[in-house]
Structures are given as C-alpha cells and as structure tokens.
C-alpha cells in the first residue's frame, strides 16, 4: 500500500477537489452524476495529454510553452494534407502523421536547448510565436470544417454511452483510452526506466548528472521530442473530437496546463513531480473550467479562481516551510 503524505500537494489538491464537489452538489444537486463525471473525463483528455508532456519537461528542469503551437501546427497540417491529397487514410495513420510532425517540431526546441544550451523558456516562447505565425502565414488560416472521413469516424467511437435516470445523455469516447495509454507509458518511462531516472537526475542537478556520465543532451532531446509527439497526438485528438481543424485553436491554453501540472506538485525548478499529482491538477482545472457556469458563476471568474488556486495551492506549502524554518532558527 502506498503511504499517503498528508502534507503533499497531491493531498491538498485532492481535498480542494472534494470540497469543490461538495459545494457544487449542494448548490446544484444534479452535479454529482454520471454525466458530469463523463463530461469531466472527456474534457480532460487533451489537457491531460498536454499536462503529462509538461510534467516531463518540468521534471527535467525546463519549461515548455510551445506545445499548444506544436499541437495546432501538427493537427492543421495533417488534416490539410490528408484532405488536399484526397487520401483515405485510416485514422491510426492520420494520428501517426500528426505525432511525427509534433516530434519533428519538438526537435527544433531540442536543437536550441540541448544543442546551443539556451534557456528553455526563451526558446519555447520563440517557437510558440514562430510556429503559430508560420502556420497562419504559409499553411493556412482557413478553418477546415469537414475533416477527413476517418477522423469523423474516430469521433464516433465510444467506449460506453447511455442515458441516466434523469434523462441526461452521457458517453465516453475512445479518445480517452489514449490518455490512459499516455499515462501508463509515461509512468513506466519515469519510474521504471533508467532514461526516466536520467530525466529526474538532470532536473535535480544538471552538473552532477554530467559528472556521473549521464548523456544530458540526448536526454533533453528525448524530452522535447516526446513532448512534441504528445502535443501532436493531443492536437489531432482535439480536431477529431471537434470534427474541425481550426488554426486559431488551442494556443492560449498553455498556462492552464502548466498551472495544472504545478498545482499537482511539479516544481518549476525541476526534479520533482508525479503523474498522480498532475492528473489531480488536471481534474481540478477542468472542473473549474467547466463547472463554474453550471453553478451560475460567470465564465470570466474562471481565471480568477484558477489564479487563486495556484497562489494558495503552491504558495501555502512554501509559506509553511518558510515559517517552520524561521521558527527553527
């Protein structure tokens, strides 16, 4: 049995989620239901895949803000190419193309970060802006509203569907299985492979990692390619589920995703973070994003609430640590 650390960020976020559910159910009894749960799971797919990627980068001691631009670049280019060539590719191949484009774009980040050793925030801010501009200028700025048939077909695949006693319809798409797959794969990578431990090690101390002979560059190249690949996957899932490829989509979401990851306990200084924490952070952010409207709170309040959660969720533990240190002299 894993021990529960009652002082960890994970536990704190878990408590906030429970509190949120209680308050929400009290003011809107229909909240605590299967349809709400499935809504939450569906809305968590894309953010969840993004957040797992961000977690990896944060653990390695970097930060990536370009993943939304990578995702939208990959999804739009893939959809456009498949359509214009008139190919009837099955959806797994379409997804693969998008993932590969994402990886390729991630490698651009890797060249600057691992190759030229530039600060990760600067590099990814640059690629965020450049990729989006390139996409809109040279690839296209027209929304594609009839995506290829295989993508539409994917959007209709569901694991379960039904109607509850109140007559509300619910369904869980197969896309959710991708989130589960990404979680399992990344968990295995981080905790069971030496490559994963190398990622923790370079985030803990880059200099020490070099000294004991970890190939820091290769590890970084892997991290940014992996995140790029995940972004490509999240992007094409997003487009398939919405059945529309919008080149103006997704960009702007990056701070919410980073917020979810940080709320879950990953440190911006690197070396720390767990999958459980990240998923809890995602649940909280998605819940706030989707459910405040249900409670009759205007949507403009979402960002206020998310901001407050970040300040409390990450500020409180570090304030307590400081007080304890001062008390101890």
């Amino acid at each position: 049995m894993p021990k529960i650390n009652y002082k960890s960020n994970e536990f704190l976020v878990f408590l906030v989620i429970v509190a949120f559910v209680i308050v929400a159910t009290a003011s809107y009894p229909g909240f605590f239901s299967i349809p709400t749960l499935f809504d939450l799971l569906r809305n968590g797919i894309v953010i969840g895949i993004f957040a797992i990627g961000v977690l990896l980068v944060l653990i390695s001691g970097g930060i990536d803000v370009s993943f939304t631009a990578v995702a939208v670049f990959a999804l739009f280019t893939t959809t456009l190419t498949v359509k214009q060539l008139g190919l009837d590719l099955p959806w797994p191949l379409v997804f693969l193309v998008s993932v590969l484009i994402g990886m390729g774009l991630g490698l651009i980040n890797a060249v600057f970060i691992a190759g030229f050793r530039l600060p990760t925030l600067i590099v990814t801010l640059g690629t965020l802006s450049a990729l989006r501009g390139f996409l809109l200028t040279f690839v296209g700025s027209q929304l594609i509203s009839n995506v290829p048939p295989s993508m539409q077909q994917f959007s209709r695949l569901v694991i379960v569907r039904g109607t509850n006693a109140q007559g509300f319809f619910y369904s869980l798409p197969w896309a959710f299985a991708f989130l589960v797959g990404v979680v399992v794969l990344t968990w295995f990578l981080l905790t069971r492979t030496l490559l994963g431990r190398n990622i923790f090690a370079i985030g803990g101390s880059l200099e020490s990692a070099r000294r004991i002979g970890i190939n820091v560059r290769l590890t970084q190249v892997f991290v940014y390619a992996y995140v790029g690949g995940l972004a490509g996957l999240a992007g094409i899932i997003h487009a398939s589920m919405a059945r529309v490829a919008n080149p103006f989509d997704l960009v702007g979401l990056e701070l919410s995703v980073i917020a979810a990851t940080v709320l879950g306990g990953a440190r911006l200084s690197g070396g720390y973070g767990t999958i459980t924490g990240t998923l809890l952070g995602v649940i909280l952010i998605v819940m706030v994003n989707n459910s405040l409207i249900l409670l009759g709170i205007p949507s403009t309040w979402q960002s206020v609430v998310i901001g407050a959660l970040i300040l409390l969720g990450t500020g409180l533990p570090s304030y307590q640590a400081k007080r304890a240190a001062r008390k101890a002299g």
Partner: peptide
C-alpha cells in the same frame, strides 16, 4: 568527491 558532492537532492 567534489566539494558540492554532486548528488541529486530530489532522489
């Protein structure tokens, strides 16, 4: 063994 020990604080 360097002065800073070159350890990983997070592991």
């Amino acid at each position: 063994i360097f002065q800073d020990f070159s350890l990983f604080p997070n592991l």
